[in-house]
Design a protein around this nucleic acid. Structure first.
Lengths: 148, 148
DNA sequence: GGAACTATATAGAGTGTCTATATATCTCTG
DNA sequence: CAGAGATATATAGACACTCTATATAGTTCC
């Protein structure tokens, strides 16, 4: 009964595919997600970022190198551990995320505008739940990795 | 006010990233989406599939070749046009989609179970709206391409 | 002080996407 | 009704991103 997960999974998946296809493709999904994570949770190490994005450390190293090249993040040393690299989002990075969201939101807004007021309200009500779901899912993935 | 698109864009995008990272990675997102489209709307030509998935025709050609190799789709000729190839999902393809959804849904169900009853209800209510939104977005993308 | 561990970097392979172009077939016009 | 242009798919080659395996630099702990 509470298992909305089943229906939601199938329904949302196709929507997400549309989402991906409609979004600007100037950067990989992983890079966007990493930028978003850095913005939401603050600076992180390469390894932490790899864990939180679910990709390997070498992937993050090259991804970060690319983001540094375009100025969206910066690499800082960790004074307490000279091996580590702490990655932080820059203002340009935040601006990029904002612009990107605006573009994507614009595309979706046109579709949302065609919903009835009631449908739109239903969707709007679900947004915070979706955000919470994201956090729950992230925490769960972290737990799953710890088991390994 | 009706502009839930803005918030939804950012929220859903991050959820998408989690979704993608947690899903089985034995096949590309585009291939899954194509399979799903074939299941939902019936057999389509290579070119149609390319348009509906938002990728190029050569990409679909090779993607379909891979899906044929594993038996998830079959290539049929179009009797009325010998140039064309009509792609149809097979039973194995549907079974694969079903299994995949079950896995993904399972992951999400665990998270959904941690939501309150009220939150779960809110999410469940939004599912049909999300499905409708997907259709609106797809139609819109088609229209946008026609303009070009 | 050195062995074992940890953080990041580098190398090389595999996959998926793209653009440009080739081939086969169809359609329509003079 | 023949040939020109349009259309459907295939092929070739390049580029981007990811992975596994391994190297290097720094840390921790006995």
């Amino acid at each position: 009964m509470v298992r909305a997960g089943g229906d939601a999974a199938a329904a949302v998946y196709d929507l997400l595919a549309s989402f991906v296809r409609l979004s600007p493709r100037d950067m990989s999904l992983t890079s966007i997600a990493a930028l978003s994570t850095l913005e939401r949770t603050g600076p992180r190490r390469i390894t932490e970022l790899a864990a939180s994005e679910g990709v390997t450390q070498p992937s993050v190293t090259s991804l970060v190198a690319a983001l540094v090249r375009v100025g969206y993040v910066e690499r800082r040393g960790d004074p307490t551990d000279k091996r580590a690299v702490v990655v932080a989002i820059t203002e340009a990075g935040s601006a990029y995320l904002g612009a990107r969201r605006a573009v994507t939101a614009g595309i979706f807004a046109d579709a949302v505008d065609q919903l009835s007021a009631e449908e739109a309200a239903t969707l709007a009500a679900a947004v915070p739940v979706i955000e919470r779901l994201r956090d729950l899912v992230e925490r769960q993935r972290g737990a799953a990795q710890d088991q390994k």
